[in-house]
Amino acid sequence: MTRSVPTTPDTVRRQAAESAAKRRKLARGTATRWRRRTLLGLYLVFVMLPIYWLLNLSFQTNTEILGNFSFWPQNFTIANYTRIFTDSNWYMGYVNSLAYVLMNMLISISVALPAAYAFSRFKFIGDKHLFFWLLTNLMAPPAVFLLPYFQLYYSVGLFDTHIAVALAHCLFNIPLAIWILEGFMSSVPKEVDETAYIDGYSFPRFFVTIFIPMIRSGIGVTLFFLFMFSWVELLLSRTLTATNAQPIASIMTRTSTASGIDWGTLAAAGVLTILPGIVVVYFVRNHIAKGFALGRT
């Protein structure tokens, strides 16, 4: 609409009404905006408070933690962190965890990519049932598989190795990867495939040089989820390892000793388990929203 000089009384009235409405809407907009910000702020405080408390305790000595309640460290110390970084038992826990998580990500994504392509492009006998079976694995409680896993990996001589945990986590990570990737792949039009085949591309060449770059963001998000679920899992990784491949999560139980719990070290170790997550989420921050809908919105 162009804003011309009003000529009839009717237009004058209408324009006046319009501008009044606009002013009201603006005023209302500011009020709502502030209410929204406050509510969201409150929720963020709720999210951050326990984490802040962990951070707070990690910079205090045990005597200060137990002796004197304070909202921030009075005698700031990094002794808890030095202990973790100088004791190989401690820091190897992080190395072990990262090792099996990375192995799992690599295995899962490399078998999930072709499988997800098959599910998104073809119909075949038993496709729906296979897909459902995969999802049930995603939902199977690890506790159910605990004992047989222990026996299985023991009998094939993989007990207490990184690869054992990586393979065990495939149980839920491969189905998850297929589920997410299938969503992303289905949003790539089929004409892309057909054009490539007409241009004389073979399937592997098309898949690697054209298709994979097209769903880059989907792969990024998938890797993020694989990392997340493998990194946070405790039950299987603890059961399948003893000393050589022990994850940080189970090493943390060592902070409770006969003389009480070493709160400072526990807090510091906890803070260090959050850091890799922050790094990973930073990389995928722009795609994460779509990824959470598993590519289908």
Partner: peptide, 28 residues
């Protein structure tokens, strides 16, 4: 906001337990 909100999801489950143990204990 996205990164902050995602944070709790990326914490190992037993650490979540520890965080809340530290957060809710009556003494510390």
């Amino acid at each position: 906001v996205l990164i902050l909100i995602t944070l709790p999801l990326l914490i190992p489950w037993n650490v979540v337990g520890s965080i809340w143990q530290l957060f809710t204990r009556g003494d510390i």
